[in-house]
């Protein structure tokens, strides 16, 4: 399933904000956080400040970044949320 498709599923969940925050935490606590480009990070920071983390485009970005930095943790989270990777 693509990150776009997963983001579409997550954005409609009642706990979409919570899911987005968990994805953000996965990225921010990763030893691979430097794999996030400054432009992508700026996008996350702006979304965080404007309370838009759970919007479709931001969720998609978070999924892509979580996959890039912590693929195993992302897979566990997706499975926990009842989706297939």
């Amino acid at each position: 399933m693509s990150s776009r498709e997963l983001a579409r599923i997550f954005v409609s969940r009642a706990d979409a904000q919570r899911v987005a925050e968990r994805l953000l935490d996965i990225v921010m606590t990763s030893y691979n956080v430097s794999l996030v480009t400054p432009a992508e990070g700026e996008g996350l920071a702006a979304a965080f400040e404007s309370n838009k983390l759970s919007e479709l485009e931001v969720l998609e970005l978070l999924l892509e970044l979580a996959y890039r930095t912590e693929p195993e943790k992302l897979r566990s989270l997706i499975e926990e949320l009842g989706q297939q990777t």
Binding site: V36, G41, E42, L44, A45, F48
Partner: peptide
């Protein structure tokens, strides 16, 4: 942490 993460 990167600057963007410090900002968050």
């Amino acid at each position: 942490l990167p600057l963007w993460a410090l900002r968050i």
